[in-house]
């Protein structure tokens, strides 16, 4: 099986699989592959690997670019500022002292204290769990009935898990959380086809809480929160979405909770 031409090396097999050989060399490699099942199976693997990598990661190309990301002037925010913004979440969580000030930018400066606290808790819970790869939820959607019953019992209120499939967001499951003021809260998590996640944070509010309109807050790193109080319950929908996109989902959640 001697070959009179230059020996075929590893580089040739990779270049063949990647389509980077000139026609003459390609023909030589093809002859070699025909004689060597081992070389053939390697080349086949390299090609399949590239196809598989594209299949896995190409969906990222289709993820929408926020308006901010398309605006060069918004790219200049310093890395330090971003690190501080994230560190704020970490420090608050670690200290157990929850304060919304300095953490969130509120467009509702008149919001009375409990509501921003609700938003801050929701944002922190989102930051902690939405990035989680192994254990994003405590109880998965496969046990939805159990999840809802359990959370309702722990919160002392009938809880519903809204469904957003028609908007492209699949319920993944949920978890029980401590509430800042004591007591318990919970979080439902949703994921879209692009792997983005949003969370719905729910906790019981004090007896004398007035109901509120939807209020909006944005963490400096682009995480947005809509929160509202309704019938002794506080709700917050959190995600790295544009305000209008998040609001659209908020309305659907609200309708389902009210129905």
């Amino acid at each position: 099986m001697s070959d009179p031409r230059a020996p075929i090396g590893d580089d040739d097999l990779h270049a063949y699989a990647d389509g980077r050989l000139d026609p003459a060399r390609r023909a030589e490699v093809e002859v070699w592959i025909a004689q060597s099942p081992e070389a053939g199976s390697r080349v086949a693997f390299y090609r399949r690997l590239n196809v598989e990598l594209h299949r896995r990661f190409d969906p990222v190309l289709a993820e929408p670019l926020s308006a901010k990301m398309q605006e060069p002037r918004s790219w200049t925010r310093s890395r330090l500022a971003r690190a501080v913004a994230v560190a704020g979440l970490v420090v608050l969580g670690a200290a157990g002292g929850w304060t919304a000030r300095g953490l969130m930018h509120f467009d509702d400066s008149t919001g009375h204290p409990p509501a921003p606290l609700l938003a801050a808790q929701a944002a922190i819970a989102h930051a902690v769990y939405a990035v989680e790869v192994r254990h994003p939820v405590e109880v998965a959607v496969e046990e939805e009935a159990h999840l809802v019953t359990w959370l309702s019992r722990r919160l002392g209120q009938t809880i519903k898990a809204p469904h957003l499939e028609t908007s492209g967001w699949r319920l993944m499951g949920g978890r029980l959380l401590p509430a800042a003021e004591g007591g318990v809260a919970c979080q439902f998590m949703y994921e879209n086809a692009g792997g983005q996640r949003i969370t719905l944070f729910i906790k019981t509010a004090a007896e004398d809480q007035p109901e509120t309109a939807f209020r909006f807050a944005q963490e400096r790193d682009g995480v947005s929160v809509f929160y509202w109080l309704e019938r002794k319950m506080g709700y917050a929908l959190t995600g790295r979405l544009e305000r209008d996109d998040l609001l659209r989902l908020v309305r659907i959640v609200y309708e389902q909770l009210e129905s």
């Binding site: 990598l53 896995r56 990661f57 190409d58 990222v60 190309l61 289709a62 993820e63 670019l65 990301m69 398309q70 060069p72 790219w75 200049t76 925010r77 310093s78 890395r79 971003r82 990035v131 790869v133 792997g195 983005q196």
Partner: peptide, 30 residues
Amino acid sequence: VAHIPHLRRYARALLGDRAMAEDLVQDCLE
């Protein structure tokens, strides 16, 4: 801007974590 989706895809594949990848892309754009 036209290259951002590609930077994102590579960063996501390289780091395996959405938040880290977005941060790297953001740093790169800056």
